[in-house]
Nucleic acid binder design. Structure first.
Lengths: 132, 132
DNA sequence: CTGGATCCGCGCGGATACTG
DNA sequence: CAGTATCCGCGCGGATCCAG
């Protein structure tokens, strides 16, 4: 897929294109709504399943399970099971996950800082649509 | 929605919860696959529609149109129409968009740097699943 | 060239019920 | 408590056709 056999001008650029596609795939794998929210929630410390569920609030049990499994698969989250009754499962960020927390937080804080500008832009856009 | 009327312990925390939800909504609005890819593509300079389409490569016309419209609505992208035949429409990052480029790039570069670790974690995870 | 409109399949994501 | 399994609606997203 994504042949794009043309435009092989320089080896440097060609490599860039390849890595670009790789990055794109990784980005689309990681950058979805739930992933970011879960990473952020786990950034405040290790949590058990339902505690995590409450922290995020709007997430369903299914999506949380699924997202956690993906994150564990990608090596960003560790899953520790304590075999007692009732069973305890604690999720925590791995070293890789903690490292990933930085760009995620950067994104979150950016949104926090500029949310007003965005909402204003939205109202401006909505108002402009009337004058058409 | 998202009532959650309990747990109003301290006004500070209560405000944090409110802003947290606000941020979450913003994040889920901005952080999807296409948005990030388009922002990144526009980060390399203003582009016209099909040029942008080629740059991203894997995006369909529908999704590009849709994503661009959302980004314009959020004030991150400007749309300049030059009324000629054939019509030219140039998309560019606004100042807000350029600013947003920073955390997005941070995310992208992080993925680029750690993609190997992620792929390795995936293979480790896959291998561990066999030993069950 | 820059889209809008439409059809449609598939997967996201919620709800519910059940297991250990 | 921590999930798995199932059903199901709705929206994402591709494909195609058409307009300005």
């Amino acid at each position: 897929m994504l042949a794009q056999e043309g435009t092989i001008s320089k080896p440097g650029e060609q490599k860039d294109t390849a890595t670009c596609e790789h990055i794109s795939r990784m980005l689309s794998r990681i950058c979805d709504k739930w992933t970011v929210l879960v990473i952020r929630a786990l950034g405040r410390g290790p949590r058990r399943f339902n505690a995590l569920r409450r922290d995020i609030g709007e997430i369903s049990q299914k999506m949380l399970t699924q997202t956690l499994k993906e994150l564990e698969e990608n090596g960003l989250v560790s899953r520790t099971v304590t075999p007692v009754t009732p069973p305890q499962v604690e999720y925590a960020l791995t070293e890789l996950g903690k490292d990933f927390l930085r760009p995620v937080r950067a994104l979150a804080t950016w949104v926090a800082v500029h949310s007003d500008q965005i909402t204003e832009a939205r109202s401006v856009y909505a108002e402009a649509r009337i004058n058409v």
